[in-house]
Write a protein that binds this DNA or RNA. Structure first.
Lengths: 251, 251
DNA sequence: GAGTGGTCTAGACCACCAA
DNA sequence: TGGTGGTCTAGACCACTCT
């Protein structure tokens, strides 16, 4: 990097990664850095901006530029005892899973394809905020085919389209009882920067990407019983999988 | 957003997401936006900077501010026929997997813990660049315990510490032949913004996060035979898993 | 009130790309 | 060569936090 702000950013980055600033420490104030490097204010801010977007620091008005702490906690799939709900996956007792919206909707083309339905088919859409340690760690948007929702309403008597029906917490168990025992789930994980609205809802600092997980679950008869898109805060969670490397049936 | 640059960014973002600018299109030049909004140059640049760090656009000197195309391709684990190598996981015939460094090293505490060894134990370290469609999509750093590397050198006659020994491509097969048949792998996936060096090596545009996958593979006797840290370009790949939801042994 | 970072201006010069 | 974005300055005013 041959620019002034690049050199300043390099110096500060090296100091942070080298441990000379620890998590929670503050970088020198902008006026100090202006004097040290003999540059203008915006040049210092460009340097700090680079570190901010790398996720290393968070500038706080009235406080200073604080070195970030990175302690994402892991969510794990253990094939020996598959955890099925957010609260089961979290050892943290403060973990919570709140249904924010629930209701009937029409499947857009993408969702319809994921569920193997015609575009515009009726589905139940549920949006949840999954939190731990005070902050929202994941937004979970889920779509369930009409037939599955109806079977659940008929058998266990739970209305998935009602966000206040608390009996709908453990959806996979309800599916089992309704004759749609979930058998296999496929998750596809990607990452991107959050939209401003996602930043607001989850309270993400600048420079934090999100993990985007798209999942489709099929029952024992290979029927798609739900599909979900989950958007998780990259500084608060990881996702882990344990997979057998030998062909199925060979276990 | 109540700032000037925030409003400009909102307008442009809405236009992009609303399809008024398509992938490959250019935003109006900075001088035009200065006139349209009657603001200074840096105010426009702040707005464009926000969109850049959201991954929506890439400014190119001498060209313009180009709307990004987002087409990550999926890597999948299919439990029925577990793909073991990068080239096997990719349908793309241009996919390549090049060993950039290979040699003996001492395990740092983190790697030692992942392999169940004492810190400082001797391991083979291998660094690969995995590419597709011209660009490097993933950096793969891998550590193999001394015992496993020696068993492989003894049985199939392959030297893992030699980056030019091309017979080492399909490591999992070599392990099987050397009596360390890989049985189970655990992958933990997180995300963060890339370090500047990672941006350079992979040619990542600003605003693109990386997928960080940490993997440990165990053989049939539950011995750790390798651990890897993979850093993948968030705009070029996703990782997918198919998992059985029923307890092991119940399949 | 003192000190922090956030926004904005007007102008300058530089680096890069395409015609 | 003309137009694009990239960097940098000097100065101003604002918003916020802490004591």
């Amino acid at each position: 990097m041959h620019t002034k702000y690049g050199r300043i950013a390099d110096d500060l980055r090296e100091a942070i990664l080298g441990g000379r600033y620890k998590a929670g420490d503050k970088l020198p104030p902008i006026p100090d850095l202006m004097r040290s490097y003999d540059v203008a204010r915006d040049t210092v801010r460009d340097a700090i901006g680079a570190l901010t977007h790398e996720g290393l620091v968070t500038p706080l008005r009235g406080v200073g530029t604080v070195v970030r702490e990175i302690t994402p906690v892991a969510l794990a799939y253990d094939p020996k005892a598959p955890a099925r709900t957010w609260t089961q996956q979290n050892s943290d007792p403060s973990a919570a899973d709140v249904v924010v919206e629930a209701g009937w909707d029409e499947a857009d083309p993408d969702i319809a394809e994921r569920l193997g339905l015609a575009a515009g088919a009726r589905v139940v859409r549920r949006l949840r905020h999954q939190s731990r340690g005070g902050g929202i760690a994941q937004l979970h948007e889920q779509w369930i085919p009409e037939q599955v929702a109806n079977d659940i309403a008929r058998t266990p008597g739970t209305n998935l389209a009602d966000k206040d029906d608390v009996s709908a917490t453990d959806l996979f168990s309800l599916m089992s009882e309704a004759g749609h025992d979930p058998a296999v789930t496929t998750e596809t994980i990607g990452t991107r920067m959050p939209a401003p609205e996602e930043r607001d809802v989850m309270g993400l600092p600048p420079g934090v990407p999100v993990l985007v997980t798209k999942r489709t679950t099929r029952d024992v008869r290979d029927m798609a019983v739900e599909t979900s898109t989950m958007v998780g805060a990259g500084d608060r969670m990881t996702q882990s999988f344990t997979v057998s490397l030998r062909p199925a049936g060979d276990q």
